[in-house]
Write a protein that binds this DNA or RNA. Structure first.
Length: 479
RNA sequence: CGGGGCGUGGCGAAGUUUGGUAUCGCGCUUGGUUCGGGACCAAGAGGCCGCGGGUUCGAAUCCCGCCGCUCCGACCA
């Protein structure tokens, strides 16, 4: 009973208030703190450690396909930002400006980067000369600033941390292949590191990135059945090259414009992980990105030999390459159980006097709550197996949620009904007319999420205008 | 940017209607007993009551302005 009471105080149940549940986890799992400027967040050590694992794994994947990291300046001169009209128009409402340096007013104001296409293009216009130097496959890990109206930790903040990949290629085909490769890289990362299934697709004209020729996306379904765009990959054609005068001498010695891509994922992925896996006891982390994969808790730790036994377990797991921590602080055992559940640690290993007698330890899973007693000799193998099972179980549950709440529908009335009955993704046909897309938002309250890469090839009717058409499209309420 | 809710030690709240110098729980510090699901006893520390102005002998409380958090819309990773 005492536990229930304290849990009610500790965290709002998701059934009661999903938004409050989400922010409770962000704060009480010690991922973030609010900063002193509206919309800015402090990534605390535990939250930043998650981001570091995301960076480490993803960066490794980028490097496997030949990408190199660079660092671009945080400030962009207004004149440079304005060279590409669509990009400027798209971002104008949310750019923050520097107008003074020291005590001097600047002759030209400087934008805090909302994204760095302009800086990359400016740089390339200086350094690119020949087709032999292509492709240039760059990426940077940094933060960007967008002056958002309403803000929430990880999901929408005025500063967020991300990676932005920017590449230029000799041909359109190569650039398009790069766009697809990076989208697949994100989808694979979500599956293998975050245990999150995604819907891969293309954005409509209305939803695509300002200035892009085509925008691809991975869409994820959260536990409240809302959609979260979790990564994007853009194909720019040669639009920016022309705007920024990026040229090279081609194989035929004519001056040519390279074809460009950009792609990004952000700290929003942490928000996605929270809303995909966690429960009313707190965060649940996929083992691949958990800062601590196993916490070792000595029980009755003042009894002779207990700390030593727990230390030995910790050392064995560390030697086996597991990210492990022992907590021998003076808190009670029950407090520690609740604390590490709140922080989403995948496995808890308990060792007490009774276990020592029997030559065993207790392993508890965060995802299912199941406890098992395993012989001491099987510690490493059991931990390895359970971490794998947790990943698979988290993925399976998320996949089930996506499957259970994705509906093949025919009319906007059906879509509206779906939203009113708990939400989800609606898969319908679409005629391609933006007026119908807007009407869907007005009538059913959903926005287009993406046209899936896997198209069925069948014919059906647009749910708004009734026209015969073939395009499959997902609709949903988005974060 | 429009509409609602909220702002009191680190956290959660009471006190505001009817002005009189701040209370409770948790947490924190020290000492002791505990530890297999959020332990207990004792002694302590900690507050420009979001900020600024006004009314008043006196403001957490009344008035004006601003800021922040949050939810619902519109915009976005």
């Amino acid at each position: 009973m005492a536990k229930d009471q304290r849990n009610v105080e500790a965290i709002t149940p998701m059934e009661e208030d999903f938004a409050k549940w989400y922010t409770d986890i962000c704060l009480k799992a010690e991922l973030v703190d609010y900063a002193s400027v509206k919309g800015f967040m402090i990534l605390r050590p535990y939250g930043y450690a998650i981001w570091e694992h995301i960076q480490r794994i993803m960066d490794g994947e980028f490097k496997k396909t030949g990408h190199e990291n660079v660092a671009m300046p945080v400030l962009i001169p207004e004149s440079l930002l304005k060279k590409e009209g669509e990009l400027v128009n798209g971002f104008a409402p949310e750019v923050a400006w520097v107008t003074e340096g020291g005590s001097e007013k600047l002759e030209e104001r400087l934008a805090f980067r909302p994204t760095s296409e302009t800086m990359f293009c400016d740089h390339w216009s200086h350094v690119l000369h020949s087709w032999r130097e292509l492709p240039m496959l760059y990426n940077q890990w940094c933060s960007v600033i967008r002056w958002e109206k309403t803000t929430r930790p990880f999901l929408r903040s005025r500063e967020f941390w991300w990676q932005e990949g920017h590449t230029i290629h000799e041909t359109a085909e190569e650039a398009i292949a790069e766009t697809e490769q990076q989208l697949n890289c994100y989808a694979d990362f979500c599956r293998d590191a975050l245990a999150m299934p995604v819907v891969k697709g293309r954005k409509t004209e209305k939803e695509k990135f300002a200035g892009a020729e085509a925008t691809y996306t991975i869409e994820c379904m959260m536990k409240d059945r809302k959609a979260l765009q979790s990564g994007t990959s853009h194909y720019f054609g040669d639009k920016f090259s022309r705007a920024y005068d990026v040229t090279f001498a081609g194989r035929d010695n004519t001056l040519q414009y390279p074809f460009q891509t950009s792609w990004g994922t952000t700290t929003r992925l942490i928000g996605a992980v929270i809303m995909t896996h966690s429960d009313n006891n707190g965060l649940i982390l996929p083992p691949a990105i958990a800062p601590v994969q196993v916490v070792v808790l000595p029980i009755a730790q003042h009894k002779p030999g207990v700390i030593e036994a727990a230390t030995a377990l910790r050392d064995r797991l560390a030697a086996a390459g597991v990210r492990v921590k022992m907590d021998d602080s003076e808190q009670s055992a029950g407090w520690k159980f609740a604390q590490y559940e709140m922080k989403g640690v995948p496995l808890r290993v308990e060792i007490g006097p009774k276990d020592m007698e029997k030559g065993q330890c207790c392993i508890a899973r965060r995802d299912t709550g199941e406890k098992a007693f395993v012989p001491m000799a099987e510690l490493e193998s059991s931990v390895e197996r359970l971490l794998g099972e947790i990943h698979n179980n988290l993925y399976a549950k998320a996949e089930q949620n996506l499957a259970d709440n994705t509906f093949d529908l025919n009319t906007w009335e059906e879509v509206k009904e779906m939203i009113e009955n708990g939400g989800g993704f609606a898969l319908t046909k679409w005629c391609g007319d933006e007026a119908c897309e807007v009407a869907m938002k007005e009538k059913a309250g959903v926005s287009s999420r993406c046209m899936p890469l896997k198209q069925s090839g069948t014919t059906g009717k647009c749910p708004i205008c009734g026209k015969e058409c073939t395009t499959d499209i997902y609709w949903g309420v988005a974060y």
